[in-house]
Amino acid sequence: MFDTLTSRLQGAFQKLRGKGRLSEDDVKEALREIRRALLEADVNHVVAKEFIERIRERAVGQEILQSLSAAQQVVKIVNDELTDLMGGAQAKLARAAKPPTVILLVGLQGAGKTTAAAKLARHLKASEHRRPLLVAADIYRPAAISQLQVLGEQIGVQVFTLGDQVNPREIALRALDEARRGGFDYVLIDTAGRLHIDETLMQELQDIEKSVNPDEILLVVDAMTGQDAVNVASHFREQLSLTGIIMTKLDGDTRGGAALTVRHVTGCPIKFVGIGEKVDALEPFYPDRMASRILGM
């Protein structure tokens, strides 16, 4: 549906034939196309602007061996830079020196927190032979607790619940006790979806953070998110000590530019991606793949 960035840049560089170097003007034209590609991929427009600046600095005065391959060369610069920004090496899940490791999942409504909690639990159990405990700390959404229980049953992981009449901070604290007593080495806390501007519910998360001092606070972000990702990420980052990101629903056909936005705003690595509704549809994050996807390549 989208022209590939390469072919668009080829268009922009048509007139370059015979020149050896990219001039300011050539670069300007190319940058316009790159900006468009980023915006169509839902990279936040302010983040895109800053990114374009970095590219400008690198691209001006670059040696162009053959003008015919100028487009490819610029795309390579863009791709490398984007991969870099997305976080070079793959980031692993934290592990507490003294178990249990506590992981808190937070994010907007419907982002995929409950599913991600179950996926992480399954991953820890199946691939790392750990004993995770899932904690039902969403007391608001209708049937949130039974959703987690159904998933827990599917993967054979115990779910800790105190029903929906006890406050989430208390639930988290008691779950931690239970984990210590029961010899669990991971505690995965599923929280209710909330808006970043909801002061009461954001305070609730801060209370949980203070009480159980999580080793990881993972912001769960829907890959289809648009420009608002910048607001969501900055509010969550300001109010909680985020340590990582999970991008969900990457099995869709979105270009997923929110990944760059969120990464840029929080400074946190994207640790996992969700690629389906089933409990095994979780993958580590590969920065280079994400960069190519955003650029539509």
């Binding site: 549906m1 907007l108 289809m224 648009g226 420009q227 929110a258």
Partner: peptide
């Protein structure tokens, strides 16, 4: 459609 969704909403 979720208002937080970007251009993928068109598809």
């Amino acid at each position: 459609l979720d208002a937080t969704t970007g251009q993928n909403a068109i598809v």
